[in-house]
Design a protein around this nucleic acid. Structure first.
Length: 488
RNA sequence: UCCCCGGUAGCUCAAUCGGCAGAGCGGGUGGCUGUUAACCACUAGGUUGGCGGUUCGAGUCCGUCCCGGGGAGCCA
């Protein structure tokens, strides 16, 4: 008897091709999850060969991975059956194939079940002399060069599944709390938001960017009639919707043209940015802590197999560290207290600690890794260090900002209560040299029904680094973009 | 952008003081085995990143350029 699995579209009678395919084959993850239900039944799997071991005792072991989970399914091919071996002969690491057979308990060690092949179909061969992926460990640097093949490795496959599950969890978290998902623009004309260098968007001929006689505004004849850029943040636009729908969030790509080449920076990365009306910094902080903990819980409970892989091969302390983050309250410390603490630490920092200076990486690391040994939120930064939109505190010297720092990564969340008072916003803009004319819409939000509101940004890739233990951010995004790198 | 380290076989790396270019894995061939990154034997595979210099002799020393990695800054 043949067991058929998932056929979500079948009842609609549409898209027949997809339906037939999904009826015909099982995903390997499903076979492992419901072993008892599939044992003794005929199933079909489709995937890519990860390894093959031939035994002259009339058996070939072919391990198949279909990306649905970390584990491979061991397929048993009896070499005494010419109708199978005829197909099997050229099968090597990297080949794609379809196997139909009976799922049985495995007598060998290392797996409970195995598939005894009755039919074998090869989709695509893979020349073993040319296929770059070997069964042994490759350097991440090498895998980046073969970005079109690296998702077929255990590590990149695992991180990709975790990334997907986390993205889903982000939506679940906010949707369950009444947040509205806002698609803020990728292209923006707001050039400076205090968030780094921007990429210009233009249709002008790079050989002749300036139209004759219009040197005063070279972008007047550009596509948008003025200078345009890729967004560095959806926050300002999210504020617009927060001041109408109450609770909103954006979740999309952002772009920074910084010439920074580090293991924690990308030119294109994904950011989660909630914005909440009728909220202050305390609400903001609570929501951020709640989100971080919920996302980690999801990884701990929903990505067990992939997480175990990271613990085994990337960072042995990873799971314990994640559990600790969920269990303990985040430390909250004001910038002023942090400075005092650092000054009296007795540590010999390369950068001097002085009120008014930004906290350096070494300072942040000292706080989270030595002093607190858990995530810590630093709040109330000097006004001069932060952008114009942050709310000025009553002391007049600091703003209601927060940075959540985690051990090993550094800043993972940055947020603030926004300045909702018109006069103070205008004063901030004047001090920061930002023309209110360029942000008239932002200013008007404070003229018409302004309310206290707050929000934050969480870098998806930084977060993925934290939950996978991967040291380089280029491994946690499918196609990393950094200075000099935009392949694939 | 700055500092440090690196570039040797398809991959991961070794090569002592400047003295014959190596290993493991992968590939090919043969053997062995309900195998588990299988195992054993044999075998093919090199412009040592490019250019220039020092030297009897350069993978090794010097200059320069290119590329990569790590760290810093900036930030998420």
């Amino acid at each position: 008897m043949e067991v058929r699995t998932l056929q979500p579209e079948a009842s609609y009678g549409t898209n027949r091709r997809t339906c037939r395919m999904m009826e015909k084959s099982s995903r390997i993850a499903e076979l492992f999850e419901r072993e008892d239900q599939f044992l003794g039944k005929t199933v079909t799997v489709q995937g890519w060969v990860r390894t093959r071991r031939d035994s002259k005792a009339e058996i070939s072991f072919v391990e198949i991975n279909d990306g649905s989970c970390l584990r491979n399914l061991q397929v048993i091919v009896e070499l005494s059956r010419p109708e199978l071996t005829r197909h099997l002969d050229p099968v090597t690491n990297g080949c794609s194939l379809c196997v139909k057979g009976v799922l049985q308990t495995s007598p060998g060690k290392g797996q409970n079940i195995e598939l005894h092949a009755d039919q074998l179909k090869i989709y695509g061969l893979s020349d073993p002399a040319l296929y770059p992926l070997q069964k042994k460990r490759h350097s991440f640097e090498f895998l980046r060069k073969i970005g079109h093949l690296r998702p077929r490795t255990n590590t990149i496959g695992a991180v990709t599944r975790v990334r997907s599950r986390l993205s889903y969890a982000v939506h679940q978290f906010f949707q369950e709390r009444g947040f509205c998902y806002i698609h803020t623009p990728i292209i923006t004309a707001s050039d400076c938001e205090g968030a780094g260098e921007t990429f210009r968007v233009t249709t002008l001929d790079p050989g002749h960017p300036v139209v004759e006689g219009q040197a005063d505004d070279p972008f007047r004849d550009d596509f948008f009639g003025k200078a345009a850029y890729l967004t560095v943040s959806g926050q300002l636009q999210a504020e617009i919707y927060a001041l109408a729908l109450g609770r909103v969030y954006t979740f999309g790509p952002t772009f920074r043209a910084e010439n920074s080449n580090t293991s924690r920076h990308l030119a294109e990365f994904w950011m989660v940015e909630p914005e909440m009306a009728f909220s202050d910094l305390e609400d903001d902080l609570a929501m951020a802590e709640c989100l971080v903990k919920r996302l980690i819980e999801v990884v701990l409970s929903q990505c067990r197999e992939d997480l175990a892989f990271f613990v085994r091969f990337i960072d042995p302390d990873l799971e314990k560290r994640l559990e600790r983050v969920v269990e303990t309250a985040f430390e909250i410390i004001t910038y002023t207290e942090a400075v005092r603490l650092l000054k009296h630490s007795g540590e010999d920092f390369a950068y001097p600690v002085e009120w008014g200076n930004d906290l350096q990486a070494e300072h942040e690391r000292y706080l989270t890794e030595k002093v607190f040994r858990k995530p810590a939120a630093v709040i109330d930064f000097p006004r001069s260090l932060k952008p114009f939109y942050m709310r000025v505190n009553d002391d007049g010297d600091t703003v209601a900002a927060m940075d959540i720092l985690v051990p090993g990564i550094g800043e993972i969340v940055g947020g603030s209560q926004r300045e909702e008072r018109l006069d103070l916003l205008l004063e901030q803009m004047r001090l920061k040299g930002i023309s209110p004319d360029d942000y008239s819409w932002y200013v008007e939000l404070r003229q018409f029904g302004s309310v206290p509101h707050a929000g934050f940004g969480l870098g998806l890739e930084r977060f993925l680094q934290f939950v996978t233990g991967l040291p380089n951010i280029r491994e946690v995004i499918p196609f990393p973009r950094s200075p000099g790198h935009a392949q694939f």
